[in-house]
Amino acid sequence: MPHPFFSRVASVLPWALLGAKLGTLALNAALFPRLRPAPPAPHHRRDLQTARTSILMPARDEAHNLHHSLPGLLSQGAAEVLVLDDHSQDGTAELARALGATVLPGQPLPPGWAGKNWACHQLAGAARGDLLLFVDADVQWQPGTLDALLHQLDASGADLLSIFPRQANVTWGERLLTPVIDDVLLSGLPAPLLKIPSPLASAANGQTMLFRRAAYRASGGHAGVRAELLEDVQLSRRVKASGGRVALALGGDLIGVRMYRSYPESVRGLSKSMLRFYQGSRPLLLLSWALFFLTYTRPLFRSQRGLLLLGLLEGGLVRVVTGRTRPRDLLEVLLTPLLPLLALPVYARALQREVEWKGRTYRQDTSR
């Protein structure tokens, strides 16, 4: 029989957690920046800004995404669009070249580097622009997006502007887990915290990261996070540590992404950096799942309607804030009580000593 103290804690914690998350959501609904079309500006000024920008895409076996993403990137008017072909086996280089991008052949991966970081490091070395825009191959751009990004960069005064694209989930398999990413951001990170100079008050999303070159260089760039699987967050911290500013925004109608195309792919993708998200601590990782279960799944078995409704409300608000309000997007909310169970394979893979991604194996810290 559980000790009364632990029973009391198990009863109170879910209410406290959901209360804090809903409060953060309400704050972010009002304050979290959204990417919007840039206001009218003289053409010569806008052309000057875009001419300073290098769009840089690391790509490893991304032919299935390039048809959807690369044409939108090439139409933005940037000084250059460089694609680093990281030893693809699916015709990525040929397709990117046929669509009009400049393709760089990737060099062999040196010891101690994660694949994406090495690819981005090579891209930064080849880029000519004063502004470096790193973008993943699965990100889809609408006309005028680069203008909007440059306007947001100037308006925020940031040295690093990172965007969280709107998720474009299609199949139910990919809808099971990926919406959790939006929840972690919007219910876990109050927007005003980003204005604090401390490097710990930082976040970023490697899918879209726009750097001023001087800030990128001062932070150490991807070379400074060469072995990191959570390189985007670590880069944002290094930018702040070197005196720069970091800003975030939601992609809104301008930037979307289809991250994964099945439940197994979601499990592999989300697990690769989860342990690092918890600072390499396996006990903390396990504790987070236990709290996850107590808050969202246990109420289903104990008929705790209040907690269940708050969990559903949280999921609905996240989708409203991100603009994912189509009927199928909203139906995802009904999966909320099952999310801890659906996420079990993610946690199990994250606990392993090695994780695999895109045909490469990375050893994780086993000290904790």
Rank of each mutant, 00 (worst) to 15 (best):
residue 171 T to W: 09
residue 206 G to P: 02
residue 155 A to M: 05
residue 206 G to K: 10
residue 203 A to E: 06
residue 155 A to W: 00
residue 137 A to D: 04
residue 171 T to Y: 12
residue 194 L to F: 09
residue 162 S to C: 09
residue 211 F to K: 11
residue 228 E to F: 13
residue 162 S to H: 06
residue 215 A to G: 06
residue 145 T to R: 03
residue 214 A to R: 14
residue 186 L to T: 12
residue 149 L to P: 03
residue 181 I to N: 15
residue 193 L to V: 06
residue 216 Y to N: 13
residue 223 A to N: 13
residue 189 L to V: 08
residue 163 I to Q: 14
residue 224 G to L: 05
residue 155 A to P: 01
residue 200 L to P: 01
residue 200 L to Y: 08
residue 186 L to R: 10
residue 212 R to M: 10
residue 159 D to E: 06
residue 216 Y to Q: 09
residue 145 T to C: 04
residue 182 D to T: 07
residue 140 Q to A: 03
residue 138 D to R: 00
residue 142 Q to Y: 04
residue 207 Q to M: 11
residue 194 L to R: 03
residue 192 P to F: 02
residue 150 L to P: 08
residue 139 V to M: 12
residue 188 G to V: 07
residue 214 A to P: 11
residue 172 W to D: 06
residue 153 L to W: 00
residue 229 L to T: 12
residue 198 S to L: 03
residue 186 L to W: 08
residue 137 A to Q: 06
residue 227 A to Y: 13
residue 222 H to I: 00
residue 215 A to E: 00
residue 175 R to A: 10
residue 171 T to K: 14
residue 191 A to S: 15
residue 217 R to H: 09
residue 211 F to T: 00
residue 163 I to H: 07
residue 209 M to E: 13
residue 149 L to F: 05
residue 147 D to Q: 14
residue 174 E to A: 08
residue 210 L to C: 03
residue 214 A to M: 04
residue 161 L to K: 11
residue 173 G to Q: 05
residue 217 R to C: 03
residue 214 A to H: 13
residue 144 G to T: 08
residue 143 P to F: 02
residue 194 L to Y: 11
residue 156 S to L: 01
residue 204 A to C: 10
residue 140 Q to N: 01
residue 157 G to F: 02
residue 220 G to P: 07
residue 157 G to M: 05
residue 221 G to P: 00
residue 150 L to H: 06
residue 217 R to Q: 09
residue 173 G to W: 10
residue 199 P to W: 11
residue 194 L to D: 00
residue 140 Q to W: 04
residue 142 Q to H: 03
residue 175 R to K: 15
residue 191 A to N: 10
residue 229 L to E: 09
residue 143 P to M: 07
residue 216 Y to S: 09
residue 151 H to P: 05
residue 138 D to T: 01
residue 176 L to D: 03
residue 149 L to I: 04
residue 196 I to Q: 14
residue 140 Q to R: 07
residue 160 L to E: 12
